[in-house]
Design a protein around this nucleic acid. Structure first.
Length: 276
DNA sequence: AGTTAAACCTGGTTGC
DNA sequence: TGCAACCAGGTTTAAC
């Protein structure tokens, strides 16, 4: 499910309510992508700090009193969503993580279990440091200029669709928003990244930002699993121009939207509007 | 070195 | 109706 907008929608739903919350217990269900790691024996009495996001990861810092006591790095994988429940009932078959606090229970529901909850002593320590080190720049970082974006694309010969998905040039756009941004920038997904001119790279970066920003404003996309922390669905999927619309008319020229597998993912595009 | 498959899981949908 | 095949928002790891 979750690309950057969905993760950020989630973060915004839990950050304020949980800032300053005191943890009672941590409970784990079936194994997720990685084990929790070298976590404290007990989480009781730890206080939650300001929850932040990097790429599609959330960082939930913990303190004992004023002393930092590591934190939890969370990833929603393909099918994960977080809920904040005033009174959480018994965990269901896909509830694999509960953080019970004095402000409610933060619960991760993740049927496919590609998500992760790992403890780290800090963002600068492993495993968090290694996981985050692979990530490219944040899409809304003002230091990510069109020139810098273009320079990264110049180093890659793979199709632009694959390069965007890799997150090397900019993080946050997954399969949906990559398709949508390429459509908006009128760039063919199979075009080699190093063949993209600076003006087109400029347009593509603007399209990525616009697409992610619009999705964020609409509460993300809900294809199947994703809901925000209150259980509400996102609305962006109804606005998608090409994603999931194989055979339907391109909103710009009316030609049928094509679907092709690229970088192991279904890629939707208009073969007329999007130029190589 | 850089690009591309395989792997991790479960469940819903499609087609024979 | 039953069952196999295919598909799904991600990312690491192994293999060309």
């Amino acid at each position: 499910m979750p690309e950057l907008p969905e993760v950020e929608v989630t973060r915004r739903g839990i950050a304020a309510p949980l800032a300053g919350a005191v943890v009672h217990t941590l409970r784990l269900g079936k194994p997720l992508r990685w084990p929790l790691g070298r976590a404290p024996a007990s989480f009781a009495g730890l206080t939650i700090g300001d929850i932040t996001r990097r790429g599609k990861y959330l960082w939930l810092p913990l303190t004992r009193g004023a002393v930092p006591e590591g934190g939890l790095l969370l990833h929603l994988g393909m099918s994960g969503s977080l809920g904040l429940h005033a009174r959480a009932g018994e965990p269901g078959p896909h509830d694999h993580f509960d953080l019970v606090t004095d402000r409610g229970t933060l619960r991760l529901n993740d049927p496919r279990r590609f998500g992760a909850v790992v403890w780290s002593a800090s963002l600068g320590d492993d495993p968090a440091a290694t996981l985050l080190a692979r990530l490219g720049p944040e899409p809304f970082d003002p230091e990510l200029t069109p020139q810098r974006f273009h320079a990264t694309l110049k180093q890659r010969r793979a199709p632009i669709k694959a390069v965007l998905l890799s997150g090397d040039a900019v993080v946050g756009a997954g399969n949906i928003y990559t398709c949508e941004a390429l459509f908006q920038a009128a760039i063919h997904p199979a075009l080699r990244a190093d063949r993209i001119s600076l003006p087109r790279a400029d347009r593509l970066l603007a399209a990525v930002r616009q697409t992610l920003g619009r999705a964020l404003a609409l509460g993300g996309s809900t294809l199947r699993d994703f809901t925000d922390v209150h259980g509400a669905s996102g609305a962006y999927q109804a606005e998608a121009a090409v994603y999931g619309r194989e055979g339907q008319p391109c909103p710009r020229c009316g030609a049928p939207v094509k679907r092709r597998v690229m970088a192991q993912r279904s890629t939707y595009f208009c073969a007329i509007c999007q130029k190589r």
